[in-house]
């Protein structure tokens, strides 16, 4: 069940690597892409269960990417990563078809939670 394929698109290396390390601890197969175009190529050649993407990237507006991906892969789970100060962007991305979003910086536990499907929002999380 944990052997799901995840694609991470972010132009920041440290974010990509962080995501990969966290998700791999939980058994995900993680592919990385630093640009939208490369990411789309990868998605076309391989099937993914989850797309984890940044919203602001140099070459393409994050919202356009969302629309494009949602059109092409209607059932793909999409989680958007945003920085602080982009509350509107986060809410807008939900309206445009993202399944969930997470704010950077995040804890490993928070990332794993949004990566898993069908989880309740308010689950007990014990330390």
């Amino acid at each position: 069940m944990r052997n799901k394929k995840v694609l991470v698109i972010d132009d920041e290396y440290i974010v990509r690597v962080s995501c990969k390390r966290v998700l791999e601890t939980d058994g995900y197969t993680v592919s990385l892409s630093s640009s939208v175009s490369d990411g789309i190529k990868l998605m076309e050649s391989e099937g993914f269960d989850l797309l984890l993407t940044d919203l602001i990237m140099p070459e393409m507006d994050g919202f356009e990417l969302l629309k494009l991906v949602r059109d092409k892969w209607p059932s793909l789970r999409i989680v958007v990563m945003t920085g602080y100060g982009t509350n509107e962007a986060a809410n807008k991305s939900l309206e445009l078809g993202a399944d969930d979003f997470i704010k950077k910086p995040f804890l490993p536990e928070e990332l794993l939670l949004v990566a898993g499907t069908g989880q309740k929002n308010y689950v007990h999380y014990g330390e």
Partner: peptide, 16 residues
């Protein structure tokens, strides 16, 4: 925006 990414790295790797 610039700081969020390195902070992500610091927090994630420290926690791991």
């Amino acid at each position: 925006h610039e700081l969020n990414s390195p902070l992500t790295g610091i927090i994630v790797f420290a926690r791991l």
